[in-house]
Design a binder for these strands. Structure first.
Lengths: 132, 132
DNA sequence: TAACGTTTGTTATAATATAACATATTTAAG
DNA sequence: CTTAAATATGTTATATTATAACAAACGTTA
């Protein structure tokens, strides 16, 4: 039912901007972009972000402090994220690879710890930056 | 030769504190701890951290903005990190699992992007937090 | 329609990180 | 040696990212 849940006004505004962006957006750049829409304070942005993350609509790219829309199917995938990040052009792509996610979901360390969630970030050069 | 490189005064002080800590340390808590040793400003800490990361002596736990000593062998492993993080007690353990690192090193996405580096963070419950 | 959970608005402030500039120290080449 | 280049330090100021605390409004649903 998580998918069906309707978003609030601020949540919609902010999700919309993130979905339209080509790159990950930072919280304060989102704030700047929505000030004309009446969202004036950082907390308003962070609160919406927090909720959208919980719903699986967006993800945080931890090493960049930036946010991207989920490209998969915003369900439990929010608990199992993988990104490839170009160090030159900063482009971030969400990886959706069944084998990889299966492998990681089933991974166990020797201590017997239970994993509920993971986040994987690859850094490198995208094909177009490699060429130039 | 990276391993042989001798560390500067500040770098030694800061590495020492991180190595002795049981949990990941935040930059400002490091700063607080080294003020008696003459390191007064955030930048002095961040600069040492940056260098130590480059040398593979420490890693940054991205989702926590915190730093841990490398438990492996501070060489190229700094380019291939994996952690398990307990969401209750916050304990962070570096995972060293040949299979996992081999799997990730060889991972390729469909776009043909070249990966030089990755960071993987698992979140869950450690065995002792599971019990209680 | 009352009660509960969620969302909003707002001000203030905490926590994390870097810019810019001046100086000192170390390293390596000539 | 000694001078140039690279690395490290010290310092002040400021940028960036994120949360605390409080009050009010909205939206379910019992």
């Amino acid at each position: 039912m998580a998918q069906t849940q309707t978003l609030s006004k601020n949540q919609k505004i902010i999700l919309d901007i993130i979905e339209k962006a080509k790159e990950p957006l930072k919280a304060y750049s989102i704030l700047f972009n929505v000030q004309k829409k009446g969202i004036k304070a950082p907390l308003q942005v962070y609160r919406a972000l927090e909720k959208l993350i919980k719903l699986g609509k967006i993800h945080k790219v931890e090493s960049r402090n930036a946010f991207v829309a989920c490209k998969n199917s915003n369900c439990e995938i929010s608990k199992a994220t993988a990104f490839s990040i170009c160090e030159t052009c900063k482009k971030v792509t969400e990886i959706s690879n069944q084998k990889l996610s299966k492998y990681l979901k089933n991974f166990h360390d020797k201590t017997g710890m239970t994993y509920k969630k993971y986040n994987l970030e690859f850094y490198g050069l995208c094909t177009s930056c490699k060429r130039s």
